[in-house]
Nucleic acid binder design. Structure first.
Lengths: 222, 222
DNA sequence: CTGTTTCCGTAACCTAGGTTACAATCGGAA
DNA sequence: TTCCGATTGTAACCTAGGTTACGGAAACAG
């Protein structure tokens, strides 16, 4: 059943053998779900009772703030679990929308089944803890990024992280529209700031290819 | 040794007996740390190898963004663990500054000792998982709050959460200066917005006592 | 190929909030 | 009590980014 995908790619199942993966699936997967591009998989505020394992496709997690703005949290690619950090929470409402970016397949694993597996498998438990911790670190960093005041600095830091002095270009994973939501700003505002950096000769862009020409002039325009 | 404090108040040690608490301490606490008001306990970026258990005092966790702004993350009161969510992370750098708000005492418990305890104690493991999940939920909510664009809406939502239609007042835990950092804005900006709400008769303030006069006029000034 | 939709750049204008500065008040220490 | 530092309110000014609107390019379906 559904074992054409490689569970080893998933941080939850790392360090386990193919046989263990298969028997795990046999025991615990009772339901397989498909979603088409654009469909909402989980809505912000939904109560979660299961772990969703994304085994095919890409989803986007996003938040709608109370004043109606959308911010992207992350893009998740198969194989990856949804919600692991939340099934244990005291108030287990899902904090983000999950939207399929392409046709997606999920395996549904019940919370209780998952707990049982983890109790009897130290590797699984370890992977789970690490994943949770990494999620916390990720959210902290996201918080820090969103808290940076000027778009120019947000963008600068983003560009510096995506490149090195040796490899001064990279290819954007996102459209400009999505990139704007990632930064939590309006699309025209992002376009304006990108243009400024281009006009100053600090970067150049060609479609989704972005080249950093003068690393040292990024950041510290307070 | 240092058992005048009630470990039952700590979400990590809930559901365990006094005897278990005591023997836990005997086994694992090798070091006790004191900090005076204003001292920095941990600095953003420090590598963490131990769990710090705050058993007396109050600390503030804060982040300095790359453009130099300070945002408050949380106020933590004893008894509460620092860092539990991070000791397992792949990249275990502490993401926030921790500053003592009053004289504080910490117990230091090594990462490995903690792991060993957890492996042999289901309650401890469960508490730990729940705490981690709750941390993730908390950070998600914080992210959502910070992402709200207008200060007026941030403040409105804050006020609505702090009061009910029945009990329409509350006492601020923070100074105005700290409150501004909590929202990630400048102090004069916060003062201005509070004044606006007062001028419009929506709230009234008297020192740290804030009263909401017209709940339904809060929020939705887009 | 053509029609349709989504994406993108751009410009003009406006507003929320940052910035700075100063004076009043409060609170603890001597 | 007086002094000093930290905390506040307030005002004037400035700027980053939001808003809206429009036209063109790219992507896709038929």
């Amino acid at each position: 059943m559904m074992n054409e995908n490689n569970l080893s790619d998933c941080p939850l199942f790392r360090g386990m053998s193919k046989e263990e993966h298969d028997s795990f699936m046999q025991r615990n997967v009772k339901e397989v779900l498909h979603f088409e591009k654009g469909e909402v998989v989980v809505r912000q505020g939904d109560i979660i009772n299961s772990m969703y394992l994304l085994i095919k496709g890409v989803v986007r997690t996003q938040m709608i703030t109370q004043d109606g703005n959308t911010i992207e949290i992350d893009l998740l690619e198969a194989v990856f679990p949804l919600a692991p950090a939340f099934i244990y929470a005291s108030r287990n409402k899902y904090p983000v929308d999950v939207v399929a970016m392409e046709p997606c397949t999920f395996l549904k694993i019940s919370k209780s089944a998952w707990l049982k597996e983890m109790a009897g498998n130290e590797i699984l438990l370890n992977n789970f803890l690490t994943l949770n911790s990494n999620m916390t670190v990720f959210l902290s960093e996201k918080l820090q990024m969103i808290s940076i005041k000027s778009l120019r600095n947000k963008l600068s830091i983003f560009l510096l992280e995506k490149t090195t002095p040796e490899k001064n270009y990279f290819i954007l994973k996102r459209s400009r529209t999505q990139l704007a939501e990632y930064f939590g700003v309006q699309r025209p505002s992002l376009a304006r700031t990108i243009k400024e950096l281009e006009d100053e000769g600090i970067i150049s862009t060609n479609g989704r290819v972005v080249t950093v020409l003068e690393r040292d002039k990024l950041v510290w325009h307070e």
